[in-house]
Design a protein around this nucleic acid. Structure first.
Lengths: 238, 238
DNA sequence: AATTATTTGTCCGTATGTATG
DNA sequence: CCATACATACGGACAAATAAT
């Protein structure tokens, strides 16, 4: 966000993701963008390089720099993911995201039940106890909830899953304001809230991990996320 | 792969992933790399920009360009993923990859059972019938197998899952030669082979999707991938 | 606390490579 | 084969940030 080429990547990238630059369209040539945004051609070239690495464009000689189809995008880049989530024309993407969570987070819970060390167990216990004490306190809950899931995730000892789920979380947090707005029209929030029912769901996960019951941990984590999915399905009418 | 900065990204990126440049280490300054690789400083700068977008490094003025920890890497970039898979010091990464597949592909199968259109069903049927006719023919099998999974994936209508699984597949294919070498020491291959048993597993998936039985499709796809995981566990002794 | 040295960040002018019509 | 349009590459200059002194 600090240097000019990064800023340019953000400006152009967002326009591509939101469809302002459509798939197959040719971006203005480097020289024109240089003029329009008042930066040098070098900066534009660096920005193009960044957009290329994000899978948003491909530069070809003579043909210019073309916007690539969605299938080529680097969806798991935090910027791209955030832009997509924030795109209002893309409401059902939250459903898709939840389906990915439904695939990966129960798996992480099962792996944690299998691989957690004694120290991991202690950390998870600590987070869960803070969760119990946070009933009703929105802020303390959010912090404990974050830690609880984070520590289970870490205990899965699968770098790829850890990184992917964390990226997903970060993107959701970054775009949370907007989504909360949408959720206000509905009695239930698509995010975990400090109610007794949700706490009990967390307890079920906690107990399963402690008992090293992989299948139960998987099932209980699935239940927790399915709760979110049901709410989203209701909102967006799937 | 065609221009110099891309080549440089590959050379440096691979060295970072394999640990030749360790986490926290400072890369040689742009000017030295420019000299060492006989490219201009502009090219080095573009390469650094690419490596930055891959989450492999961060540049700071005066402090130099530092190698970031694994947690910051863009794991789902095809290049990064391929480099990691090909890294021989990283044998258990194949197990991690399979765990991700185990999370996402059964989910995709379940979604396909839910969302496949009539046309999707026809395409899946076509691929499965080719599979049946390919028993014993390694090459025809590979092609039909690819299409079968591809079409189920497409029928999930979840862009994020589609893109992720396809990236994973591509990376596996790109690095397949090496891994096959390792697998030769073992009677069973970690890849699907044209045997009757494997065909029956595919049939179970096919039937479940056709019957629009989400849970069964999920379960049967899980079974198929678990077969791979069992083999890997045997090889790497988990 | 101020200065300096070092390294990246930015910019431009120019030259060359390459595909299209 | 030529002209055109664009990407690619280079090197030199200055600005900005910050670690070290």
């Amino acid at each position: 966000m600090k240097n000019r080429s990064d800023q340019l990547v953000h400006e152009l990238g967002k326009k591509i993701v939101t469809g302002e630059f459509a798939q197959g369209e040719i971006l203005p040539k480097a020289e024109d963008i240089s003029e329009r945004y008042e930066v040098s051609r070098t900066v534009v070239r660096e920005a193009f390089k960044g957009l290329t690495t994000l899978g948003l464009v491909r530069s070809n000689q003579k043909a210019g720099t073309i916007v690539l189809p969605r299938s080529e995008w680097q969806w798991w880049n935090l910027d791209v993911l955030t832009w997509v989530i924030e795109d209002e024309n893309n409401t059902d993407f939250l459903v898709h995201l939840t389906e990915v969570r439904l695939g990966l987070e129960p798996m992480a819970a099962a792996l944690a039940a299998k691989r957690a060390t004694d120290q991991d167990m202690l950390k998870i216990t600590d987070a869960f106890e803070r969760l119990e004490q946070s009933l009703g306190d929105e802020k303390a809950w959010a912090s404990a909830d974050y830690d609880f899931h984070e520590r289970i995730l870490q205990a899965s000892y699968n770098d790829l899953i850890i990184n992917t789920v964390k990226t997903l979380r970060k993107a959701l947090v970054k775009s949370r304001e907007k989504t909360i707005q949408a959720a206000k029209d509905y009695p239930e929030s698509p995010y975990d809230t400090p109610t007794k029912e949700v706490l009990d769901r967390h307890r079920a996960i906690y107990d399963a991990v402690m008992a090293r019951d992989e299948e139960l941990a998987r099932q209980k984590m699935t239940d927790l996320i399915l709760r979110v999915k049901r709410i989203l399905d209701k909102i967006y009418g799937f």
